[in-house]
Design a protein around this nucleic acid. Structure first.
Lengths: 333, 333
DNA sequence: ACCTCCGGATGAAACGTTTCATCAGAGTCG
DNA sequence: CGACTCTGATGAAACGTTTCATCCGGAGGT
């Protein structure tokens, strides 16, 4: 139904090859002819059918990005970074959300593969997915985001969570805190465990016994509500702590709410340190100190690595990039 | 390079037509043959090339969704609703983010059109975009999300902002507040203006003079930081107000921060009412009362309307659906 | 024994591009 | 004036599917 290149050719009185040239290498065609073709295109409202183009070309110029959770500010920023670089370098981006569910991840990989995307950026629900391996084996470049593949056969871009924990510990110890609660999600999550490891390391490095100083408060999820509830419970019984380091900002905001609603002053009665530096951290009731991850930068780097591998696979060597986080000090510490 | 349907056919010792049948109408092919073909597919790691399929079919089975801002929880929920319905009904979804920029919107529309998507859901940067009209004229069904087209020639799904303002006004007046600040973004935005109109209407309906009761505090954007700054300025000079109705939750959270940091108690010294009921509203330092929009429902409805129009264009009549928001009372009022 | 019917497999056409070898015509040069 | 070159246009092949008319062989009916 829609106008095809052939219609345009007829209308302009040229061959379809010429129309194709106008579309793809305008400089190769004489100015007069070009004008005619362009106006025919405009009159017919012609839009190139990219299915046909891709079919012929054998590959598309789009990338797929599969994230765990679009509601998570971390991934929003990563996506923004990827998008920037992709459009800048002439690639389209297909954004997919797996919602941490393996079945949805697989379905997305399936359609991306059917579309013959040029490459895939993904934070896999679990490292070592069959479908993902198969994709890579079939020759589609892949970059892991915020994850590492122990078998170094693809690029990955992540942030050093141990270093983040160290940063946090050094900051709190430096401020004189000696009773620190580590409010975390499930320690089964690598991020949570790594941040704890970093915290312990820096406490030890300062000459204190981590087991004395650190108290672990493990909550079932990384959400504000959960942080609030855990903190309320902890405030009710148990000896006081003078600082809390939270595995992410949402937990920290929950703890902040608990502190305010029980009449504690932040940071005088209890210092509060978050992780991620989400946009809202700066605008919390008490602006939150936090560990910032270079999120947009992660996205940009991942996209650049992927496109490099797509454009010149021969010259490409896989890299495992690891960024260092920063400490952002605000009023809560 | 990747295996094609022809390779599968050879391997299984059948014709390509049969392979296609196995893929698309498995019940039409004898069990034995089907098994052979399936195992050939598995052995070769064959993945159908959807470009070729689409080219032949003339149309794809995917929908496009273009939102203004993926960081906005409103659109995240809408997207979730759309995604649910789309996958449920066998459509793939291409998620695009215009970031409120017309050029990006146009580029996204361009690629969606080149991909021959079956239909488009969009919150346009501005109603009446040329490219969008052209798309519709060329026969691609379109549904407006959170917008209305005065020239009723497509479906739209929106929420009644005037009703939301009324709800807010009735609530605050009912609680006895007579000095209400309306903290808003630019009144040029329809949403902000509508909510004000509703507020005025309900104040008037309660027998009070809107100009007496309502004080407009217009801020340049709908962000927490901006809300904080506007509230601090307003607190410093000017007569006290006993309630603030904010055009969205982010502004309200900013006002909350200003209240807390100046020692005001919420809701005793000042009641606070937000709009949108974002997830974080319930977990703010003082859990925020808010006007809730049925966001997932909006997405689901919009997707259903679009797919209905795609599947049976003849039987389809355009509808302008308008949802009513709800009041959610928490501790801030 | 013949005809019909039917489940099931086949082969070719068509979808809209891109690419590439070829061709026509206009200069250029010896 | 004929042999070349250069610019720009042409036509056909190819990409991987889906679809549809056709074909084959065996079962059922007469």
């Amino acid at each position: 139904m829609p106008a095809s290149i052939k219609d345009v050719a007829e209308r302009a009185g040229v061959s379809i090859g010429t129309v194709s040239n106008v579309l793809n290498r305008p400089e190769k065609v004489a100015a007069g002819t070009r004008e005619q073709v362009l106006s025919a295109i405009a009159e017919l409202g012609f839009v190139r059918n990219s299915s046909a183009a891709q079919l012929r070309a054998g590959t598309s110029s789009s990338l797929g990005l599969i994230v765990l959770d679009m509601a998570n500010p971390f991934f929003q920023d990563v996506a923004k970074g990827v998008e920037d670089v992709a459009t800048e370098l002439g690639y389209a981006l297909m954004l997919c959300n797996s919602d941490e569910r393996g079945d949805r991840e697989n379905r997305h990989l399936q359609v991306l593969e059917e579309q013959r995307v040029r490459g895939v950026l993904i934070t896999p629900v679990s490292v070592g997915s069959d479908r993902l391996d198969a994709l890579r084996r079939r020759g589609t470049p892949t970059v892991l985001v915020d994850r590492h593949d122990p078998r170094v056969d693809c690029c990955s871009v992540a942030v050093d969570d141990v270093a983040g924990g160290e940063l946090a510990g050094a900051h709190l110890i430096g401020l004189g805190h000696r009773r620190i609660a580590y409010v975390t999600g499930p320690l089964g999550l690598r991020q949570c465990a790594d941040r704890l490891a970093g915290l312990r390391r820096s406490v030890a490095a300062a000459g204190h016994d981590p087991d004395e100083v650190i108290e672990i408060v493990e909550a079932p999820a990384l959400k504000a509500r959960i942080g609030y509830e855990a903190a309320r419970r902890r405030f009710d019984d148990g000896p006081p702590v003078d600082a809390a380091f939270c595995a992410n900002d949402l937990l920290a905001l929950g703890v902040l709410r608990a502190a305010i609603s029980t009449g504690r002053r932040v940071p005088d009665d209890i210092a509060l340190l978050g992780y991620d530096d989400i946009e809202f951290a700066a605008d919390a009731a008490v602006p939150l100190s936090s560990i910032r991850q270079p999120t947009i930068h992660i996205g940009r780097t991942a996209a650049r690595l992927l496109i490099e591998e797509c454009d010149r696979p021969a010259a490409h060597a896989h890299q495992q990039v690891m960024f260092k986080p920063d400490l952002v000090v605000r009023e809560s510490t």
